[in-house]
Amino acid sequence: MPKLDTFNAVVLGAGGVGKSALTVRWGRNEFLEQYNPTIEEEYRCTADIDGERCILNILDTPGAEQFTGLTEGHIKFGQGFILVFSLIDERSLKELDLIRHQIYQTKGMDVPIVVVGTKMDLAHEREVSRGTVQDLALRWGHSVYETSAKRNWHVSDPFEDLVRQMRKRYPRDAYQRRRKRDVCVVM
């Protein structure tokens, strides 16, 4: 049986935006009704994306404002990033720009990133307009998705997009060549 591609993804954003709800909905197809601030959770999900099976290790992080010192370690772990904001909290969108720049400083500009606006089912509470979301996608050059973990709307789209980006950025043959070179012999 061939070895599956394995990728490390990190979910980042402000506290309370729905990072865990999004991740658990995609990985386990469950919705978390109660909000419990995340300290740090890791999920290992096997998925079929474009007919190819892969493993996605997902690091679900605490709100960026709560544990800023940990963010650099999270960024080093990641090969791809899901930046999450709430469509009903405009401040959460502004915070993503700082996180995005921190990723660029640590990993460089050529890193797989998708941006996700959550809670699209709460249309009557929406603070971030569709025009703002479209403008963000153009300015940042990243895919931007609107989702609802509660209703399971468009939840798989950002994860599938991120895996496609990581497959392109980290092709299997290049990874295997690099691993062979990284062999360490202790004498």
Rank of each mutant, 00 (worst) to 15 (best):
V111E: 04
G80E: 03
A174S: 14
Y170G: 01
F31M: 13
G78N: 06
I39W: 10
R100S: 07
V111K: 07
M1S: 15
V84C: 08
Q34W: 10
W140Y: 10
K19T: 14
G51Q: 00
E146I: 03
S129M: 11
R53L: 12
L70I: 03
T118K: 05
Q102C: 00
R177D: 09
K3V: 09
M187K: 13
H101G: 14
R179V: 00
R151W: 15
M1N: 14
P112F: 03
T6S: 11
M120P: 01
I88Q: 06
G27R: 01
A149H: 06
V133T: 07
L22R: 04
H124V: 06
L87G: 07
L138V: 15
A137Y: 11
L56H: 08
R151V: 15
I58M: 02
A149Q: 05
L136R: 07
L12M: 14
F85R: 02
T46W: 10
P112H: 03
T118G: 12
G18I: 07
W153E: 13
W140L: 01
I88K: 09
R25K: 12
V115N: 13
L32G: 08
R130P: 07
H124F: 09
S156M: 11
V128F: 13
L93W: 04
G69T: 05
M120L: 05
H124M: 08
I113C: 05
N29A: 08
G27L: 03
C54P: 06
V163C: 09
V116T: 14
D135P: 03
V11W: 00
R151C: 14
C184E: 05
T23W: 00
A64C: 11
R44S: 12
E33A: 15
V84Q: 01
H124R: 11
C45N: 14
K76L: 14
L4W: 13
E125R: 10
G18W: 00
